[in-house]
Design a protein around this nucleic acid. Structure first.
Length: 195
DNA sequence: TGTGTGATAGTCT
DNA sequence: GACTATCACACAT
């Protein structure tokens, strides 16, 4: 497997969000290899995007959004959940892509144990579900996905019968008009059936 | 098949 | 002190 290069991430955030669909997220943990295909993403940018953590400038939490593209941005939310993002932006701007859903391909048993659920469509069909299934927690915040063996993204593609659907972001109403959510269709692994 | 609600803690005002 | 880029379960239909 080959890591996606930094140049892939050093582009406009929305472009990267769409480009990540079909790519493979690889995680090595305790001798187990986990693989998931990216099914759903959302782009979060900078000062032009009120829903973004980076909208009001840099803080201790969001500083990796302002750093090098290709790094992991992991944050804790709702008192019990983690969300996994990949830093992606052009030079001088903040931005990250939230990974909202994965299609589990390898390591399903490991994921099922962590999730307490066995149906494949319940393992990683949501931003907090996939971090639980893939054992992604805050210690991976700031991790470089272009060189890590623990967590990285590799090439992958859509099937011939699949296409990209673009919608408004989920849970965002302050700025719901921006169609910065992308998902693979048809797929039963998206986080919500109806956007 | 869909809507409502509680759990729970880090972050920012 | 208020607010979350959520999930799982309960309950009604």
């Amino acid at each position: 497997m080959i890591h996606l290069p930094r140049t892939f991430y050093a582009r406009e955030t929305v472009t990267v969000a769409e480009g990540l669909l079909g790519k493979l997220l690889i995680r090595h943990v305790r001798g187990v290899r986990l693989v998931g295909r990216v099914i759903e993403t959302e782009a979060y940018r900078g000062s032009d995007d009120p829903a973004s953590h980076a909208a009001r400038g840099m803080t201790a939490r969001n500083r990796v959004m302002f750093g090098q593209p290709g790094h992991a941005y992991v944050y804790f939310t709702y008192g019990m959940h983690f969300c996994f993002n990949i830093v992606a932006h052009k030079a001088g701007l903040p931005g990250a892509v939230l990974i909202r859903a994965l299609e589990p391909l390898e390591g399903l048993e490991f994921m099922a144990r962590r999730r307490g659920r066995s149906r494949p469509q319940d393992l990683a069909s949501g931003p907090a579900k996939l971090t639980q299934a893939f054992a992604i927690r805050k210690f991976l915040n700031g991790h470089d996905l272009t060189s890590s063996l623990e967590l990285y993204v590799a090439r992958g593609s859509l099937a011939s019968n699949e296409h990209v659907e673009q919608t408004r972001r989920i849970g965002v109403d302050s700025d719901g008009s921006k169609p910065w959510r992308f998902c693979v269709q048809p797929s039963r692994f998206v986080s919500r059936l109806k956007p």
